[in-house]
Simulated assay, not measured.
Amino acid sequence: MKRLLRIVGIIICGILLLLVRGFEDNLFYDPLLEFFKGDYTRMPIPEMDVSSLLMGLAFRYFLNTLISLFILWLVFLDRGIIKLSVLLYVVLFALFMVVFTLLIYSLEGTDNLLVLFYVRRFLIQPLFLLILVPAFYFQKQKSA
């Protein structure tokens, strides 16, 4: 029964991650969403309120992180993994936000757009979850 509840919890959290993605246009200020959907190599970067963009990215990262941490808890039920994950999420957030901010303020023409795209991708998608689950799984298997 407990295993079934954990599986249902993981499915619900997966749906929540999909909802964050599905309602991104309504929930977050991000003019780069449409920009990167088009032929961004030929278009100028759109006008944007950088502080609102950074706040939107931070909010989205926070939502994805909370859901991801809950998934990690349901999968492993290990406080040590959660503590390490929180540390990694905080450090990676600080690192990627600094890089993203520097890229936004140093854009000239189409330089650095691909780097901006991938740094932003790490901030708005739960990619760390896709890295951490197998990493912690293999680490647990190795130590068992």
Rank of each mutant, 00 (worst) to 15 (best):
M1A: 15
M1N: 12
K2G: 14
K2H: 13
L4H: 04
I7T: 11
I7K: 08
V8T: 11
I10C: 01
I11M: 05
I11P: 02
I11W: 04
I12C: 06
C13H: 04
G14F: 10
I15R: 01
L17F: 09
L17I: 01
V20L: 14
G22A: 13
F23H: 10
E24P: 01
E24A: 15
D25L: 13
D25S: 09
N26E: 14
Y29F: 13
L32N: 06
L32R: 04
F35D: 02
F36Y: 15
F36V: 07
K37F: 11
K37D: 09
G38V: 03
R42W: 08
R42L: 15
P44K: 00
I45D: 00
I45S: 06
P46A: 07
E47T: 09
E47W: 00
E47S: 14
M48C: 01
D49N: 15
D49A: 14
S51H: 06
S52W: 10
L53W: 02
L54F: 05
G56M: 08
L57C: 12
L57R: 04
A58W: 02
F59N: 12
R60N: 06
F62K: 07
N64P: 00
T65G: 04
T65P: 10
I67T: 02
I67G: 11
S68E: 03
S68N: 05
L69M: 09
F70V: 13
L72T: 08
L72C: 05
W73Q: 10
F76D: 06
L77F: 09
R79A: 13
G80C: 07
I82V: 04
I82P: 00
V86A: 14
V86E: 02
V86C: 13
L87V: 14
L88G: 14
V90P: 00
V90F: 09
L92S: 15
L92G: 11
A94H: 03
A94Q: 02
F96A: 07
M97W: 03
L103G: 03
I104E: 07
I104H: 01
Y105N: 15
S106K: 06
G109D: 01
T110D: 07
D111Q: 15
L113F: 11
L113N: 00
V115Y: 12
L116R: 07
V119L: 01
R120N: 13
R121G: 09
R121D: 07
L123P: 05
Q125A: 11
L127D: 00
F128K: 01
F128N: 07
L129Q: 05
L129P: 01
I131D: 09
I131T: 10
V133S: 02
F136G: 03
F136C: 08
Y137Q: 11
F138S: 04
Q139M: 13
Q139G: 05
Q139S: 14
S143I: 13
